[in-house]
């Protein structure tokens, strides 16, 4: 591997990852071969350098959670590869994978469905420690208390069951659990969605501290653009199973190129009632991961779509140094300034 080049080898490297799900119908449709396929994740490649945070934003249902889960093989990818610290995760045996997971953890989007409802919070938080044989019962308990405090909860919560705490409290338990083994890499799937702004700020400050002090590398999935703006180094934008734009945080915020990225940034609501939108423009045709549009998946919603947008899917191409965009209408690097698309609301 290229050890002495200035850019460090990525900690995580995802190549052409696919995860497809069969859906619908009983045995009969299967026998008739009418089984439908959801292309939840459809050929995604990304690298994350050590200590960097890649934020994933994008459409609801575009495959963000599926990507996070597939990277950790909590969902078996149907194609492509993932390498972590230079090792191909996709070919590890169950036992090897289990050992590797100590270093790669996930905060799940839905805290309720990711915990065993019959376990108390102390057992939930200490579970990764127990699985990986870290410490004894009393040191694990001590660590659970520390972790709870890190996320702003006191020890009163140790013996509660998941249904005995609020949504935001359980979400913080999920964060505490994921941090228990001091992982090198964290997939955080909407980790702050159910937290009030002050607790959210506390959690975000905690994550940035871990990043600077322990060198934590993250894939940070969120719909909250302000939070993404705070934590991200790189941002990838997903639409219907694919990345449509990826670049540095500065590039995407100051010069977004893909019409969907522009729509996203333009639609972000502002915390000021005087700036209320009178009305948002119609969404256009909504996509469906089973019957995907031909051509560019965004074309049915895109205000700028031209003939070829409806027939050919645009490849993800480098349009400026480090910024890749999948759009027929965005010219490559030298012309980027000249073909700036207007920011169009949704």
């Amino acid at each position: 591997m290229t050890e002495n080049v200035p850019t460090p080898a990525p900690l995580l490297s995802v190549k052409d990852l696919h995860t497809h799900f069969p859906v619908g119908g009983g045995l009969l449709t299967k026998l008739r071969g009418q089984q439908q396929i959801v292309h939840a994740l459809d050929g995604v490649s990304v690298d994350i350098a050590p200590r960097q945070t890649l934020a994933i934003i994008g459409e609801s249902g575009s495959g963000k959670s599926t990507m996070g889960r597939s990277i950790l093989r909590l969902e078996e990818p149907t194609g492509g590869s993932v390498s972590f610290r230079g090792r191909d995760i996709t070919s590890l045996s169950r036992e090897e994978l289990r050992r590797e997971r100590q270093h790669m953890q996930m905060v799940f989007q839905n805290p309720y469905s990711s915990v065993n409802k019959r376990n108390r919070l102390v057992d939930i938080i200490a579970e990764p420690l127990r699985v990986h044989g870290v410490g004894d019962a009393s040191s694990r308990r001590q660590r659970s208390v520390e972790l709870l405090e890190l996320v702003g909860l006191n020890r009163d919560f140790l013996h509660r069951y998941p249904h005995e705490v609020s949504g935001g409290q359980l979400q913080r338990v999920g964060i505490a659990r994921a941090l228990a083994t001091n992982p090198e890499f964290l997939v955080a799937d909407e980790p702050t969605a159910s937290l009030d702004v002050s607790v959210r700020a506390q959690v975000m400050n905690l994550l940035t501290d871990l990043k600077s002090e322990l060198g934590l590398t993250m894939m940070f999935i969120s719909h909250d653009l302000a939070v993404v703006s705070y934590i991200a180094d790189q941002i990838a934008v997903m639409y219907l199973g694919r990345i449509v734009e990826i670049g540095s945080k500065q590039q995407l915020e100051s010069a977004p190129q893909h019409p969907y990225t522009k729509a996203l940034f333009a639609a972000a609501p502002k915390p000021d009632p005087r700036l209320r939108k009178k009305e948002s423009a119609p969404l256009g045709e909504v996509p469906n991961a089973i019957t995907r549009p031909t051509g560019c998946f965004y074309s049915p919603r895109c205000p700028l779509a031209e003939a070829k947008c409806f027939t050919d899917y645009p490849r993800l191409e480098t349009k400026a140094a480090g910024q890749q965009v999948a759009c027929h209408l965005v010219a490559p690097s030298p012309l980027v300034g000249a073909t700036q698309l207007p920011i169009t609301p949704v």
């Binding site: 934003i57 994008g58 459409e59 609801s60 989007q109 949504g167 909407e190 969605a193 159910s194 719909h223 653009l225 969907y260 729509a263 996203l264 639609a267 972000a268 609501p269 939108k277 948002s280 119609p282 969404l283 949704v346």
Partner: peptide, 15 residues
């Protein structure tokens, strides 16, 4: 929390 899991374009639509 009706719109926490929605991207802002769809959130705008739901609102």
């Amino acid at each position: 929390e009706p719109t926490t899991s929605l991207d802002v374009t769809i959130e705008a639509q739901v609102l």
